[in-house]
């Protein structure tokens, strides 16, 4: 019982320190600002551009008034699909930058030696760090989520808020998985740039897997489909809360944690 409390206390200590270092970092604010700028821009494009959803609805209404029949258009659904597609892609560029410093900074400042000689398990440190960076990411997504909620609030017929919640849950799970693996990659090197490049490579790999999953027929395609994070993320954006998808993301997250703890342990055995 006390052991559990100690572990939780340590996770919290690491979490607080890490989150604080994000909040003290100018780079984090720059990233957030760019993320909001682009996210806001695409929201506007999706809704208000000449080819945007509102224009489509207006044209549709004209056609319907002329007495023609058209297949039904689920505006809210289309909107969410567009939004999550854009935010998902944007995130893929932002996540490597968020995770690149998680361990490289500790190695550069020599603080890894402090952590490694403190009575704290490696995975506790990793978990605290992961939670901190995920929290920062949620902080980045939150304002955009609010805009989307406002836009959806005007939809007619009214849209279930679950749709938005499930989609965002998927987004955060996807981000947590990528960040966790990115954290592992950052523990492999003491160069921040190398860590960022490795994580970008991972993201590109995810896209390739996703593309292959769509293109390759048969069992291989099926298998890739099951492993592809982006495929599972797509499920969430359609409002489908699938347990297997949650399990997959949590597994990727745990894999990242496990690999990070192992890689930090292995550092001890390297020649210095």
């Amino acid at each position: 019982m006390t052991a559990l409390r100690t572990v939780l206390g340590n996770v919290l200590a690491i979490y607080r320190r890490e989150l604080q270092s994000y909040l003290a970092s100018p780079l984090a604010y720059v990233i957030a600002a760019i993320f909001w700028l682009l996210g806001g821009f695409f929201l506007v494009v999706i809704l208000f551009s000449p080819e945007g959803l509102l224009a489509q609805v207006a044209r549709r209404d004209q056609v319907l008034q002329m007495g023609m029949t058209l297949p039904p258009l689920d505006v809210a659904y289309e909107f969410l699909q567009g939004y999550f597609g854009v935010i998902g892609s944007l995130s893929m560029f932002v996540l490597p930058i968020l995770s690149m410093g998680l361990y490289t900074e500790e190695r550069k400042q020599g603080t890894l030696e402090l952590l490694a000689t403190s009575p704290v398990m490696n995975w506790v440190v990793a978990l605290g760090k992961l939670l901190a960076v995920v929290t920062f990411y949620i902080g980045m997504v939150l304002p955009l989520m609010l805009c989307v909620a406002i836009a959806l609030g005007t939809a007619e017929p009214a849209v279930s808020p679950n749709l938005l919640l499930v989609g965002n849950l998927g987004l955060i799970l996807l981000a947590a998985s990528v960040l966790s693996l990115g954290m592992f990659l950052s523990s492999l090197t003491s160069s921040t740039v190398v860590a960022a490049i490795l994580t970008f490579a991972l993201v590109i790999f995810l896209w390739i897997v996703d593309a292959l999953a769509r293109a390759v027929p048969g069992w291989l395609g099926d298998a890739l489909n099951h492993l592809s994070m982006l495929q599972h993320f797509n499920g969430f954006t359609q409002g489908i809360l699938d347990t297997s998808s949650v399990v997959l993301f949590v597994s990727y997250g745990l894999l990242g944690l496990f690999l990070t703890a192992q890689s930090i342990e292995a550092l001890r055995f390297q020649r210095n």
């Binding site: 340590n10 200590a13 603080t111 030696e113």
Partner: peptide
């Protein structure tokens, strides 16, 4: 091993904690 972006006091609290 110092976290350069922390104050002395906050850093020592953190170390005492872990």
């Amino acid at each position: 091993p110092l976290y350069l972006d922390m104050t002395v006091e906050a850093f020592l609290h953190f170390v005492a904690r872990i």
